[in-house]
Nucleic acid binder design. Structure first.
Length: 504
RNA sequence: GCCGCAUUCGUCUAGUGGUCCAGGACAUCUGCCUCUCACGCAGAAGAUCAUCAGUUCGACUCUGAUAUGCGGUACCA
């Protein structure tokens, strides 16, 4: 039985790269008929941000990434929040201590900092490892007796992993193959902090084991510490049930190089967070995909394809299709640059899949916000006609406003180009035609285009666009006759009269 | 600095030794449609497969160096 987890730490809003990690875990779990677990890794109380956990849950829910077990829904392997599991980790640290896989260290943070400075001055980097631990204050250099004495005296300490001296550790990665590192170059990571909390490394391995996780799908930033994790499974004697690893490539910023950051989003005009986020400390607001009007299906589809492909030319895929087609071996190895253009294309595609009723409902919201009422049939007619030229709900009012309010001003450039001095004569003729011929497409078209414009050798573009300026305010929009038919005879005449008055 | 990962059109990518003088998508450009703007449709342009060396009858595909980018190097995750 496949069991995967998404294990964010609640230090702020979930980054779009984190969302992709969650998505890949979800797709894999669903496809394999396995379970998807949400575990909150809040072992660092200093970085805890109120509201972040709720944000993560809400964001993934909005995108349709569902969990089978987790901090918000419970499950047989709970609790799912590491701070609620605090009491559990100590015994595992003790086991490692007892088996000689770990040791106590008493070095104060200031002392370590000083040591790092000292090395830095010599252009070297200090590493707490097999070469330096004998010079530090720990139970290996001091002896167990002295260490115990200090502990009994209440001196703060941490527990560090004791890396063996010169062994090659190979991590098998589902995406990259075998990655080998030598233990001599790895440092003795802190497993248990002086505040009584485990670090990520310990808590992660213990929880993944206890929760019977079979596959760890996480960001590439974890690859360097994967050998430590493999060693921990070995030290605990859990190697036979160790999960398989897949380290995902990073999401990069659209221009230049480097990891996608919040700053890039603000600068280039796209969100890096799924939902809008209000920072509780600074009060700063960061935009979200949802608030900008992106459809969750579009975000999911776009994210899925950023670093993965189905092996065919198909690009538009629903969540169900993604689940069916997902394959870890088709995840690419290199980082992917986020593209706003591609995101917009997906959004446009999914917006077109919305029904006329759905678009009408969105349009009604915009209309009501401006204190205008419109009946449902009319809204739906406009929605059906205008949908194809819209990508975001926020464009709705801008592109459809003239269906609800007469233009208050006329685009200067368009007027200069189309509204010739004699135009009031032709516009008056339009009014006459509307007043005399049946109010239907073919009749108006025939009377205006054939019997008047063509018969009098008038410039079709000038007359029709002037009419458009009168009705819309500028030379954009759908078929002119259809537009008149939609807006209505009286309203059209009123607008043309006003334009004659104002422009002639 | 050290360790690790990566490197195919502007971007996302296909490609698992001959079928590739490299395919698709987005973006760009052109044409069609047309009263306009979009949409749509059709087409074009765009990659010495980072560089160098090797293995091989043959390399984008395998190996090694170099370069570049990224990640890690915390009592953060």
């Amino acid at each position: 039985m496949v069991r995967v987890r998404f294990a964010p730490s609640p230090t702020g809003p979930l980054h779009i790269g984190g969302v992709r990690t969650a998505l890949y875990n979800y797709l894999f779990a669903r496809q394999q008929g396995g379970k998807m677990i949400l575990r909150i890794e809040d072992t660092d109380q200093t970085r805890f941000v109120p509201g972040a956990e709720q944000y993560i849950i809400e964001a993934l829910d909005w995108l349709g990434i569902q969990f089978d077990e987790g901090v918000h829904i419970g499950g047989p392997f709970g609790p799912y929040r590491q701070s609620d599991r605090k009491a559990l980790y100590r015994q595992y640290a003790d086991q490692l201590l007892a088996d000689g896989w770990a040791y106590y260290a008493f070095d104060r943070p200031e002392a370590l900092e000083a040591k790092r400075k000292e090395y830095e001055a010599q252009k070297k980097t200090f590493q707490y490892d097999c070469n330096t631990r004998s010079q530090m204050e720990n139970s290996l250099s001091l002896g167990m007796e002295e260490a115990q004495r200090r502990i009994d005296a209440g001196e703060p300490y941490v527990v560090r992993f004791r890396f063996p001296e010169n062994i090659d550790i190979t991590v098998h990665d589902l995406i990259r193959g075998d990655v080998t590192m030598n233990s001599r170059l790895l440092d003795d990571k802190v497993l248990f902090k002086s505040d009584g909390m485990p670090t990520y490394h310990l808590a992660n391995i213990v929880d993944d084991h206890l929760m019977e996780i079979t596959h760890v799908i996480r960001g590439e930033e974890w690859l360097p510490s994967a050998p430590l994790h493999v060693m921990l499974y070995r030290a605990f004697g859990w190697e036979s049930t160790m999960p398989q690893f897949a380290h995902l490539p990073l999401l990069l910023k659209p221009e230049g190089n480097g990891k996608l950051s919040k700053r890039d989003g603000d600068r280039l005009g796209f969100p890096v967070f799924p939902l809008e986020w209000h920072d509780p400390k600074s009060g700063e607001v960061s935009s979200g995909y949802r608030e900008q009007g992106y459809l969750p299906q579009a975000v999911v589809n776009m994210l899925a394809l950023l670093g993965w492909h189905p092996g065919t030319d198909q690009e538009l895929m629903s969540m169900d299709e993604l689940i069916r087609l997902f394959d870890i071996s088709h995840i690419s190895k290199n980082g992917a640059k986020f593209s706003l253009d591609k995101a917009k294309w997906f959004q446009h595609e999914y917006f077109q899949q919305l029904s006329d009723e759905q678009v009408a409902a969105l349009l009604e919201k915009e209309v009501l916000e401006r204190g205008i009422t419109a009946n449902h049939d009319y809204l739906q007619r406009v929605a059906a006609m205008m949908k194809e030229r819209i990508t975001f709900p926020s464009e709705l009012w801008d592109t459809c406003s003239y269906f609800f309010v007469a233009p208050t001003e006329y685009n200067e450039k368009d007027v200069a180009k189309r509204w010739t001095p004699d135009m009031h004569i032709h516009m008056q003729k339009v009014i006459d035609i509307l007043n005399t011929v049946p109010f239907e497409h073919d009749a108006i078209h025939h009377a205006l285009l054939d019997e008047y414009i063509a018969a009098n050798s008038l410039n079709t573009g000038k007359v029709m666009n002037s009419l458009r300026i009168a009705v819309v305010g500028r030379t954009v929009g759908p078929d002119m006759i259809t537009l008149i038919l939609t807006i209505g005879k009286q309203e059209t005449i009123r607008r043309v009269e006003r334009a004659i008055e104002k422009l002639s």
